[in-house]
């Protein structure tokens, strides 16, 4: 549905804004997870077709033409695995944040000057 894909785009923009403007590393990772949620909403909404149902064969769709009553299962399958990967990547980023805190005793991005130009 278009409304949900617009909502997903707004979430992506908010998340990118947060990643670019926030100084705290944990806040940046929160921005990343907001982008993740928005992107998943957009991808699933691409596969949706108005008036059709979930691709699961049950009593309700028995005898009907499956090609005319089901939504596209591929975006759902992709997003399902992408959510699990997103959790693992977020955990990896958070562990890096813990490591950076032990290195500099600070979570503010301004204190890490080694790569500044």
């Amino acid at each position: 549905m278009t409304v949900i894909s617009i909502l997903g785009f707004i979430l992506i923009i908010i998340g990118l804004w947060g990643m670019l403007t926030q100084k705290n590393i944990i806040k940046m990772i929160i921005g990343f997870s907001i982008i993740d949620t928005g992107l998943h909403l957009v991808i699933v909404s691409i596969g949706f077709i108005k008036g059709r149902t979930a691709p699961i064969i049950s009593k309700a769709v028995e005898g009907l033409d499956t090609g005319k009553n089901f939504i596209d299962p591929v975006p759902s399958a992709l997003v399902l695995t992408a959510i699990v990967i997103g959790l693992a990547i977020t955990a990896l980023m958070l562990v890096y944040a813990v490591k950076l805190f032990r290195f500099k005793r600070s979570l503010q991005i301004e204190d890490f000057e080694e790569l500044k130009w």
Binding site: T2, I49, I57, T66, F70, D72, P73, V74
Partner: peptide, 17 residues
């Protein structure tokens, strides 16, 4: 908004079961 499936999805949905 699309009103029908693309060919790959059509094959998955009809031939899958």
């Amino acid at each position: 908004e699309t009103s029908q499936l693309n060919r790959v999805a059509e094959k998955y949905v009809t031939a899958g079961p």
